[in-house]
């Protein structure tokens, strides 16, 4: 009788654990389209948007509308707010951040510059980035702890610059065949994507290699990556229009979304990033929009 009691208790415990797991999965839920950042109310649709910057404090999305040489802002609900052209001076803006003083820093491909835009002071200062004799070809940009992290497309490495735009250090991957094409800073470590080798690389703050794993089997043409709130790594496949998800150790979990033009489908997407509210934002060059997905 006592044995039966123990067995029953174990079974109940197992069921409770299983139920808990199920709830966890259910709580995570499926990724679903939530909102599209649409600039049509500005009188002009986006043209080849290339990047998204999210200001958590101001609860604003900023989209780099590269083809129209302007920056767009939206509120957290996706409502269009402003279009900013810096008096028509922007030339192929590609990526941007906003610092704590409210200055916009914009990578302009057309000038190969990191351009400081102080709206209050009405000043626009483009600067070509250099490290000694080497001219940096600025590409992706992040601001972390008052340091600029700039991807140098000509080397495939990440330059770290101070506010005076002096290079303080480099993050590079000696074993990478093609160099990085995108990166994210997460808790002091650099996560980067090597497109040629189709590898995700994690570098420690001192630049040493912490880990790497291949995404090649699940991403035909990876162009961007992001690390989710739970530590999972999301990899954007530009050609297939899908996002492949891996755990931090590199085990493939699942893929979602598909190619196309309908809502929730991707056409030549170029960048992914998480907003501070755990939503996944996808910048689509091909569909000229930014779609925000949540669970």
């Amino acid at each position: 009788m006592r044995q039966l009691y123990i067995l029953t208790k174990k079974a109940v415990l197992l069921l409770a654990v299983f139920a808990g797991m199920t709830t966890t999965v259910q709580a995570a839920g499926q990724w679903q389209w939530q909102v599209t950042l649409d600039a049509s109310t500005s009188g002009k649709a986006m043209d080849m948007p290339s990047a998204l910057y999210v200001d958590g404090d101001k609860q604003r999305y900023y989209v780099v509308d590269s083809g129209n040489n302007r920056l767009l802002s939206f509120d957290r609900d996706g409502k269009f707010l402003h279009a900013f052209t810096a008096e028509g001076s922007l030339q192929r803006p590609f990526d941007m951040v906003r610092d704590e003083d409210g200055i916009f820093w914009v990578v302009e491909k057309g000038k190969n510059s990191l351009t400081a835009i102080d709206v209050a002071a009405k000043s626009i200062t483009p600067r070509v980035l250099r490290d000694g004799d080497h001219t940096i070809v600025a590409d992706r940009l992040t601001l972390e702890n008052n340091l600029f992290y700039v991807l140098d497309a000509s080397r495939g490495d990440i330059a770290v610059l101070n506010k005076e735009l002096v290079v303080e250090k480099w993050f590079s991957c000696a074993d990478c065949s093609g160099g990085f094409v995108d990166f994210k800073i997460v808790k002091g470590t650099v996560w980067a994507l090597d497109r040629s080798a189709k590898n995700i690389v994690q570098l420690a703050a001192d630049g040493s290699l912490k880990s790497s794993f291949s995404v090649g089997e699940h991403a035909a043409f990876p162009v961007s990556m992001a690390v989710g709130p739970s530590g999972f790594v999301y990899v954007l496949d530009r050609h297939e229009g899908i996002i492949a998800v891996f755990d931090a150790g590199g085990s493939y979990k699942y893929s979602f979304l598909s190619g196309g033009q309908m809502r929730g489908q991707l056409h030549f997407p170029v960048e992914i990033d998480f907003d501070p509210w755990g939503r996944l934002c996808v910048v689509e060059e091909g569909n000229s929009r930014v779609e925000v997905f949540g669970r």
Binding site: M48, S50, S66, R92, F94, K109, G110, K111, N112, V137, A153, S154, R155, G156, C176, S177, G178, G179, V181, R195, S196
Partner: peptide, 16 residues
């Protein structure tokens, strides 16, 4: 062309 949005100026090689 290296000042365009999309270029083939990428990779680790010293000479692209």
């Amino acid at each position: 062309k290296t000042f365009m949005s999309h270029t083939h100026l990428s990779g680790k090689a010293v000479n692209k």
